[in-house]
């Protein structure tokens, strides 16, 4: 119980305030608590690194290990180079994807979309366990 709540109840018990007054006071001190509880949790800071870790699984014959750490800002900077992909190449990629049954148009992707996509990688965690254990995750 908070100190304020205790004081109000003590005052009520001592007869210094009425039941209605104590009710009002209790409502007043609980209001900010409700407000803070309804606010959205603070946005998580963007991750610092994208990690790709591949380790040999229990039944693996090869002893291949991969440990890659790519800075988030490098990914963002690298993606901006996409604007230099010639239009013809983009069209060819789209055609090939459509042949494979993937209806995806690169021309519709705007730089803002890429920014948002990368910023949402925060929640990305991929874990694949087979002959090799593959983990892709973000590190802050």
């Amino acid at each position: 119980m908070s100190e304020e709540r205790k004081k109000i109840l003590e005052m009520l018990a001592a007869g210094k305030i009425t039941v209605e007054e104590s009710e009002k006071l209790l409502a007043a001190i609980s209001a900010p608590e409700k407000e803070t509880s309804t606010t959205e949790p603070a946005a998580r800071p963007p991750f610092k690194y994208l990690r790709v870790v591949v380790e040999p699984g229990p039944g693996s014959e090869t002893q291949e290990r991969v440990n890659i750490r790519v800075p988030y800002k490098l990914i963002r900077a690298g993606l901006k180079w996409a604007s230099f992909i010639p239009k013809d190449a983009q069209d060819k990629v789209c055609e090939t994807l459509q042949e494979k049954g993937i209806n995806f148009d690169f021309n519709r992707i705007k730089p803002e979309d890429i920014e948002e996509l990368v910023s949402q990688l925060n929640d990305l965690t991929v874990e694949v366990e087979g002959k090799e254990k593959v983990r892709i995750f973000c590190e802050t």
């Binding site: 002893q63 290990r65 750490r69 800002k73 490098l74 963002r76 900077a77 901006k80 230099f84």
Partner: peptide
């Protein structure tokens, strides 16, 4: 744009770590 984009990549290379190994 090549200039700012190249600088953006170079300035953010710090921390890049690649480690690939087998037997």
């Amino acid at each position: 744009l090549i200039y700012p984009l190249l600088f953006a990549v170079l300035f953010n290379l710090s921390g890049l770590h690649i480690d690939v190994q087998n037997a």
